[in-house]
């Protein structure tokens, strides 16, 4: 267990939106090829933490971040680092499925185009990433149809395909199933477990069962602080902190 490789880490991270102190001295480490869940009541800062890893706060005015966010010991907020290169290495799947208003095929190839992948490889990558995301069989005959016509669950799997097409190292997932029905949720969860063989995954979820089903490790956040973290089973079955216990047993949140 000690030999596990830490892919992504936060060290003493503080984050403010204007005067509001949203993350307080957050420390976290996400091991390679594992799924780590971030849980906690609404407003605890778990999405904010997730989005700071691929610098989604960059366009928000009045945001201030202190501390270090690291990918393979490389500072993500290094002035010399290219934010677009970084986002290629750290992909993201959002709460609401957000395919581009383009065809299914173009949804995958757009990312390849702007990242300079030669056009000759596009077809092959589209097929591979759609297969990886368990959606190939459903859409293989309709690649030219608008992505917006797919069901919510299919759209979300397409968004995952769009992300894995770029072969990122890390995939951040922000409540990827909260807008989906139980069956689609199940499919995405199977997919997450499959994807961790290749990728490092950090998932924000409100759903305790989901965290227990997919995550190897779990972080519990409350009011911007990490209260407790550890293997998922011990967080849910044997929490050390009273706050964690109250949350995972459903007393608040």
């Amino acid at each position: 267990m000690n030999s596990e490789h830490i892919k992504l880490a936060a060290r003493n991270v503080d984050l403010w939106f204007g005067a509001k102190h949203v993350l307080k001295q957050v420390n976290a480490a996400f091991p390679q090829n594992e799924v780590t869940a971030l849980i906690g009541p609404s407003g605890c800062g778990k999405s904010t933490l997730l989005r700071s890893f691929n610098r989604m706060h960059d366009l928000v005015p009045d945001v201030r971040i202190e501390g270090k966010l690291l990918l393979e010991e490389q500072d993500l907020y290094d002035k010399k680092a290219s934010v677009t290169q970084l986002r290629k290495r750290i992909g993201m799947v959002f709460q609401k499925p957000n395919p581009f208003p383009k065809s299914i095929y173009e949804n995958i190839t757009y990312g390849l185009k702007i990242n300079g992948v030669p056009a000759g490889q596009h077809k092959e990558i589209v097929e591979r990433s759609l297969k990886e995301s368990f959606i190939w069989d459903e859409v293989k005959d309709d690649l030219d149809k608008p992505a917006m016509r797919l069901s919510g669950g299919q759209q979300q799997r397409l968004c995952i395909a769009r992300t894995v097409a770029l072969r990122p190292e890390v995939i951040l997932m922000d409540e990827p199933c909260s807008a989906l029905d139980p069956l689609s949720t199940l499919k995405i969860e199977e997919l997450i477990i499959k994807l961790k063989e290749e990728y490092t995954i950090v998932i924000v979820t409100h759903n305790m069962q989901q965290a227990q089903r997919v995550a190897d490790k779990t972080y519990f956040l409350y009011l911007g602080e990490v209260i407790e973290n550890g293997p998922t089973a011990s967080i849910f079955n044997d929490p050390k902190q009273q706050l964690t216990k109250n949350y995972v047993t459903g007393h608040f949140g």
Partner: peptide, 9 residues
């Protein structure tokens, strides 16, 4: 955000 997240400027 969808476009930014896959590395678009």
């Amino acid at each position: 955000e969808a476009a930014l997240a896959i590395g678009a400027t």
